[in-house]
Computed example of a mutant assay.
Amino acid sequence: MNFHQPAASLHGLLCPKCQSPDLRTLETRPTASGVKRRRQCETCGHRFTTVEKVRDDR
């Protein structure tokens, strides 16, 4: 799966290397506790992984 989403406006994410908000999601994988996403900065090309965990607010 290869799609582009405006990560900064949706999630407040910035590239950890250059602080650009222009990120592309390269891959999304479900995990036991949430979702793992592989991302790439469109500005500098840096690749990194984000982990989203499900939170139980009961």
Rank of each mutant, 00 (worst) to 15 (best):
G12N: 08
L23K: 01
C15G: 06
D56T: 10
Q19V: 11
H4V: 14
P30F: 08
V35P: 00
K36T: 10
L10A: 02
G34V: 02
P21Y: 02
G34Q: 06
Q19N: 13
L10R: 08
T25M: 11
N2M: 09
H46D: 04
H4K: 15
Q40I: 14
V51I: 13
G45K: 01
N2L: 10
R58K: 06
T28H: 06
G45W: 00
D22M: 01
A7N: 05
L14F: 10
R29H: 14
H46F: 15
L14D: 07
R55T: 13
H4G: 04
D56R: 09
R24L: 10
R39F: 00
V54A: 13
E27G: 03
L10M: 06
P6W: 03
A8W: 09
P21K: 06
S20E: 08
T50G: 01
R37P: 01
T50K: 06
R58Q: 03
P6T: 01
K53A: 08
G12V: 08
L26H: 05
A32Y: 10
D22T: 03
A32D: 14
R37I: 01
R55M: 11
R47Y: 02
Q5K: 11
K53W: 04
L10P: 00
A7S: 07
T31F: 03
N2I: 09
R39Q: 15
A8F: 13
L10D: 00
T25D: 05
E42L: 14
S33C: 06
M1E: 07
R24P: 00
C18T: 13
D56M: 11
A8K: 09
R29F: 07
A32C: 02
F3M: 08
C18W: 03
